Amino acid sequence: MADIHLSQLALPVGGQEMISTRWWGMMCLIATEGILFVYLLFAYAYLGSQSPGAWPPAGPPELRLSLPDTLFLLSSSFLLGWGVRKGVNKERLQLALVGTFILGTIFLAVQGFEWAAKPFTLTTNAYSAIYFTVTGFHMIHVVVGLLILLVLLAWSVTGRLDRHPESAALGAIYWHFVDVVWIVVFTALYLVPRVS
Rank of each mutant, 00 (worst) to 15 (best):
D3S: 09
S7A: 14
Q8K: 15
Q8M: 09
P12W: 10
V13T: 10
G15L: 02
Q16S: 13
S20V: 11
T21F: 12
G25L: 14
M26Q: 11
M27S: 08
C28K: 04
L29P: 01
L29T: 09
I30S: 06
I30M: 14
I30A: 10
A31T: 15
A31C: 14
T32F: 12
G34P: 04
F42P: 01
A43Y: 12
A45H: 10
A45I: 11
Y46P: 00
L47F: 09
L47T: 01
L47S: 10
S51C: 14
S51A: 15
S51Q: 14
S51H: 12
G53S: 03
P56W: 02
P60E: 05
R64L: 08
S66G: 11
L67P: 02
D69I: 02
T70P: 10
L73N: 06
L74W: 03
L74R: 02
S75L: 14
S76D: 05
S77H: 08
L80R: 03
G81E: 06
W82D: 10
G83Y: 09
V84T: 11
G87L: 07
N89S: 11
K90I: 08
R92I: 10
Q94Y: 01
L95M: 13
L95E: 09
L97G: 06
L97W: 05
L97D: 07
V98M: 04
V98L: 11
G99C: 08
T100M: 04
F101W: 12
F101T: 12
I102Y: 06
G104L: 03
L108K: 04
L108E: 09
L108G: 07
A109M: 01
V110E: 00
V110Y: 02
Q111Y: 01
G112Y: 13
G112P: 05
G112L: 13
F113T: 01
W115P: 03
A117T: 12
K118S: 05
P119Q: 06
T121H: 13
T123A: 14
T123S: 14
T123N: 12
N125Y: 07
A129Y: 11
I130N: 00
I130Q: 03
Y131N: 01
V134F: 05
G136L: 05
F137Q: 07
F137I: 12
H138C: 06
I140P: 04
V143P: 06
V144C: 07
V144G: 07
L146E: 13
L147H: 06
L147Y: 07
L147V: 15
I148T: 07
L150C: 15
V151F: 11
L152F: 07
L152P: 10
L153I: 06
W155N: 09
V157H: 05
T158P: 00
D162A: 15
R163F: 00
H164L: 11
A168Y: 01
A169H: 13
L170P: 01
G171S: 02
G171I: 02
W175Q: 03
F177A: 08
V178D: 05
V181P: 06
V184W: 10
F186W: 15
T187P: 03
T187Q: 00
L191E: 01
V192S: 03
R194A: 08
V195N: 04
S196W: 09
